[in-house]
Amino acid sequence: MDWLNAIVQGTLLGGLYALFAAGLSLIFGVMRLVNIAHGDLIVLAAYLGLTVTTATGIHPLLAIVVVVPVMAAIGYVLQRGLLNQTLGDDLLPPLLVTFGLSVIIQNALLEGYTADPQKLAAGNLETASFAFGGLTLGVLPVLTFSFAIAVIWGLQWIFYCTALGRAFRAVSDNQDIAQLMGLNRRHIFGLAMALALAVTAIAGILLGIRTSFDPSGGGGRLIFGFEAVIIGGLGNLWGTLAGGVILGVAQTVGAKIDPGWQILSGHIAFLLILAVRPNGLFPRISA
């Protein structure tokens, strides 16, 4: 029963990792951009949530309503003002510019919020749990997992059932021809980044309710998201959820063996899958 419990808790944790990963997966799919600052943007969203909740006293889950549009706006401006200039055949500019951005965000957060760990106070939600088939499930992890499913379902719907998603796929297929069809790729890329950071906002708030965070935590979140994307297979959003779950389970099972091994066993699971299935478990880069 202990092991089953570890697996179930790991699965729910995987929902959070899938939320870290979804935005990363989305922008790679649309514009082949890998954003090194992604994790720092998650942490930034958590801090925005902190500011909103302390300023207004509203519940952090409600703060999502404010933080999501703010992060989306940041994403659009960031893409059009900075990242669009880095896109091209050369790999170095986007990589190094987002790396610089990561350092800037981290230190700006240090400057604004100090290095002290913070947490979003969510009252009962932090500890509430219910019994389910002999297991005790936390309400927050279950809620996080539901958010992950809803977000990925929503992204799938946008991608395959809306004009915006059609534009994303068209620009991803062939930028020149998409331009000929009247699609301004700079604007489309801006929208893709806005959407990615909207997801990041949800991830950041849920992270902040679950654990304490500090300005230096971005790198770790980037890595978890990245591992979920690679395990699941590039270009497959449901695969990303599966990747998140595998990572989460590896961590909780590892922690069960030895608490010091939690994060390490997640990385080891990732490296094992990379060794056995270099393209991930469910690759579908074409989509």
Binding site: R166, A170, D173, N174, Q179, L180, L183, S286
Partner: peptide, 30 residues
């Protein structure tokens, strides 16, 4: 190019260049 397209100049490019991840109808809708 997108601004030119909005002014009513369209092209059937050499080699068709359809969007492979879009269905026939979606290609037309684009």
């Amino acid at each position: 190019a997108d601004e030119v397209a909005l002014r009513g100049i369209a092209m059937v490019p050499e080699g068709r260049q359809l969007f492979p991840s879009l269905s026939v109808k979606e290609n037309l809708m684009i």
